[in-house]
Simulated scan of single mutants.
Amino acid sequence: MSNDQPPPGQPPDEDPFLKKPQDPTPPPAEGPYGSESPGGPPPEGPPPGGPPPGGPPPGGPPPGSPYGGGGSPYDSPPPPPYGSQPYGGGGGYGGPDPLAGMPPLADSGKRILARIVDWLIVVVPLALIGIPLNVYERTTDSDDFGDAITQSSTGSGLAFQLITIVAFVAYDTVMTARGGQTVGKKLMKMRVAMLNDGSTPPMNASLMRAIVLWLPALICCACLWPLLLLILILVDKPYKQGLHDKAAKTVVVSTPQ
């Protein structure tokens, strides 16, 4: 090893193998012209090899340039928090929102009005059918409520109940599978859509939805079942689904017409 000293006034050459003290600062970032210290000043003069062809870009250095800054991924805005997607859903755990690109969910009050309209459309013809079957006469003439139930469960009363079930289920199934709208929903400007892609429900999904919607109410729970469905629609988040919607994987959305 040579013991020659550098000339006076000239600093000694830095030993490239000298171990420097460690500090908590991150390692220098690699720029287009070599490594640079994140905290030090930019190098003076043009970079090694001359300036880039064409000169500096107009309007200042581009984003991410070692001389202009602003290109760090840590400077970008943070992602939106969970639950900030439309309808309060966000798909869960960062997944896509199933309703992205679809119309907004239908108003709950309009859904109630649409259901009343559909109920009247089916009930009025059924009331006319029940007259020749003497359904109302046997019920009003019976002094005991248990006898009325027994009479309505035999003969023509049972037939009328089956006709009622078929009428409600068939009406809702066919209208929903045809265009996603019953008469009531069309008047209220809404439709039934599949949750995954917004398409019109197919026949099997429409049938499942209609069965869960009407069958319990027509067999045993005429008052309790509609009330339960209404409560679930009002409290369900984020898609306002009743049990019939959850069974068929559908939602009710607004339509422009």
Rank of each mutant, 00 (worst) to 15 (best):
V235E: 03
K186R: 15
I211N: 04
L113H: 03
P86L: 07
N134V: 11
Y136Q: 15
L243F: 15
Y93W: 09
Q257C: 08
L158G: 11
T176P: 00
P81A: 07
P66E: 05
P26W: 00
T150V: 13
V117C: 13
D23P: 07
G60T: 10
L99T: 15
V252L: 08
K249H: 12
A205R: 14
P48K: 03
A127Y: 08
G69W: 01
P28V: 03
V252K: 10
G146M: 13
S84D: 10
G101E: 08
P66W: 05
G180Q: 08
S254P: 03
P27C: 01
P66Y: 05
G59Q: 07
P226E: 00
P216T: 00
P6C: 07
M188E: 05
L234M: 14
G88W: 03
P238E: 00
E137R: 14
L227T: 04
E30L: 12
I121K: 10
M190D: 00
P26D: 04
D118L: 09
D97M: 08
Y82T: 10
V252Q: 05
P53A: 00
G9W: 05
P96A: 15
T250V: 13
L187P: 03
W119M: 15
L229V: 05
S2D: 08
M102I: 12
Y171L: 03
L158C: 10
D97L: 09
E44Q: 14
I129E: 01
V192C: 00
L195C: 00
S206I: 11
R115W: 11
V252M: 10
P42R: 02
Q241L: 13
L243N: 13
G71F: 07
Y93C: 07
A177F: 06
W119N: 15
L128Q: 01
T200N: 08
D172R: 07
G70D: 01
D15M: 02
Y136H: 12
V183Q: 06
P77Q: 01
V174M: 09
Q10P: 01
D13S: 11
W119Q: 15
I231R: 01
L113A: 15
F168Y: 14
V124M: 11
Y239P: 00
P73L: 08
M188Q: 09
L162N: 11
A222E: 14
D147L: 09
G95A: 14
I211V: 13
A248F: 02
P238Q: 01
P53F: 02
G31C: 01
V135Y: 04
Y171S: 01
L105H: 11
I131N: 11
S206V: 12
P6N: 13
P66H: 07
W119D: 14
K189N: 05
P42N: 06
V122A: 09
G71Q: 10
G60N: 11
Q85V: 05
V252P: 06
S206Q: 09
Y87A: 15
P202C: 00
S65N: 10
D107C: 04
P201H: 00
D15E: 02
A29S: 13
L213F: 04
M188V: 09
G179K: 14
G89D: 15
